[in-house]
Nucleic acid binder design. Structure first.
Length: 414
RNA sequence: GUGGGUGUAGCUCAGCUGGUAGAGCGCUGGAUUGUGGUUCCAGUGGCCGAGGGUUCGAAUCCCUCCACCCACCCCA
């Protein structure tokens, strides 16, 4: 048997209606903040991610789906979208368009990791990027939008974590101090951390091993090492969030795995997701444009939602897309008349199913099992009288109406 | 890449110390020529993850491999 490849999956009904719901809510929220959709290719030149995401990151060193094209060039299935959006921004000179560019996207990303709960090799992200401004006002609005979106799809009990990771001017100094401090305590840390001390000292801050916590708490905090500009920026973002009554927790130890982040970073976590508790991550990336070879500066901030994870948390809260009417047609003539009726109803946006190969009882049973709102039987009697008995499957109400009045009845009961 | 767990019907799972498969749910039909949800009856269903070994005989014991899940790493 041929199966879906490891880490990929088929999304089947009724689950797909949850996905549609999440995406519809997202589009609505994006529209209300004046964001517009951008669609970039799933394939990019490998260099884009190597430079944009960071040569040393896990994504680039071991998780990318990279292959050689027939002409010898190296292509990669996108592991994330921000670099692509920035590439498109530069390529099409969107900086020349009036005002800031507020863009959103949704679609599949690919990373070759070992799958587990909430993690797939093909996974879906919904994200947005605001490019063309360094202002903390934009940071606050992006975060406000994120909260709107999550609440809009019905997510409850999430926590917004906030931090600033400084910029290219103040972060290097902090990291060297951190290295110094780590050198002294390294032998007392867990095995993973001892490795991180060398590979990526910031990651030590993210360690979850209980015994390490007291040691990590004593390490220097990035927030004490921000330069004046970064400190101001971070202060303002926090003030604007308070003004908007958006609850958040400052987590000086919140670090992100992608090299391009600077200043504001944030994350939304939710229990009930297993070990992968992060639903969304984002931050500012003022140096990204230059990193991928742009001559013009393009400061920006964005975020990305793990749609698979979000759907997991709201799966039960969303109702499916119910069938409006199931018609049991008895005989040739009735089938013909039913098809006419269905055509009219469908053109009004109602969903209709015709069943002509089952006894009425079985047809009703099917209506019940498929969650139809109404059911009707069309046979010789109805053809003669022009009157159909329409049954409300939820309330058991049963009304006789003329063929031409069915639409109205269905719609008023919706 | 590393650990742990699990693989028997479409789904959830029973099958004790070896005697070549069961239940519930589902699906199809009937009881009930045209009105669902309850009941009852019948039918449909499986190279017991794959290969090899032990044995007269293996779903069951042994070995190898594979797949899926969870976790680590890391991230959405």
């Amino acid at each position: 048997m041929i199966r879906a490849v490891k880490g990929t999956r088929d999304l089947l009904p009724p689950s797909t209606s949850v996905w549609n719901h999440v995406e519809a809510v997202a589009r609505g929220v994006f529209r209300s903040y004046n964001y517009h959709e951008i669609r970039t290719p799933l394939l990019e030149e490998t260099q884009l991610f190597a430079r944009g995401v960071g040569e040393e990151t896990d994504i680039v060193t071991k998780e990318m789906y990279t292959f050689e094209d027939r002409d010898g060039s190296s292509l990669t299935l996108r592991p994330e979208a921000t670099a692509s959006v920035m590439r498109a921004y530069i390529e099409h000179r969107l900086d020349q368009r009036p005002g800031m560019q507020k863009l959103y996207y949704m679609g599949p990303m690919f990373r070759r990791e070992r799958p587990q709960k909430g993690r797939y090799r093909q996974f879906f992200q919904i994200g947005a990027e605001a490019i063309g401004s360094e202002s903390p006002v934009v940071d606050a609005e992006v975060i406000e939008m994120v909260v709107d979106l999550l609440e809009g799809v019905g997510l409850e009990g999430f926590t917004l974590l906030l931090n600033s990771v400084g910029d290219s001017k103040c972060r290097p100094a902090y990291i060297s101090q951190l290295r110094e401090a780590l050198a002294k305590v390294a032998p007392n840390l867990c095995e993973d951390c001892q490795r991180r001390v060398i590979t990526n000292p910031l990651r030590v801050l993210d360690c979850k091993v209980a015994e390490d916590q007291p040691i990590i708490d004593k390490l220097p905090s990035i927030l004490d090492h921000l330069d004046e500009a970064c400190r101001q920026h971070f202060e303002t973002v926090q003030q604007l969030l308070r003004d908007r009554k958006i609850p958040f927790e400052v987590r000086p130890r919140l670090v992100r795995g992608l090299d391009y982040y600077m200043r504001t970073t944030f994350e939304v976590v939710h229990g009930a997701l297993g070990a992968q508790n992060s639903v969304l991550g984002g931050g500012r990336y003022d140096g990204l444009a230059e990193a991928i070879g742009s001559k013009v500066a393009a400061p920006g901030i964005g975020f990305s939602i793990g749609e698979d994870r979000l759907v997991m948390t709201v799966e039960n809260a969303v109702k499916g897309e119910a069938l409006d009417l199931l018609i049991a047609a008895l005989g040739e003539a009735a089938l013909k008349r039913s098809a006419e009726l269905a055509r009219g109803l469908r053109s009004l946006g109602l969903s209709v199913e015709i069943v002509s190969d089952r006894r009425p009882k079985r047809a009703l049973e099917l209506a019940d099992k498929s969650g139809a709102r109404f059911a009707a039987i069309v046979g010789d009697e109805e053809l003669l009288s022009g009157i159909v008995g329409v049954k409300n499957m939820r309330t058991d109400e049963y009304v006789s109406v003329a063929f031409e009045n069915i639409a109205e009845g269905l719609r008023s009961n919706k």
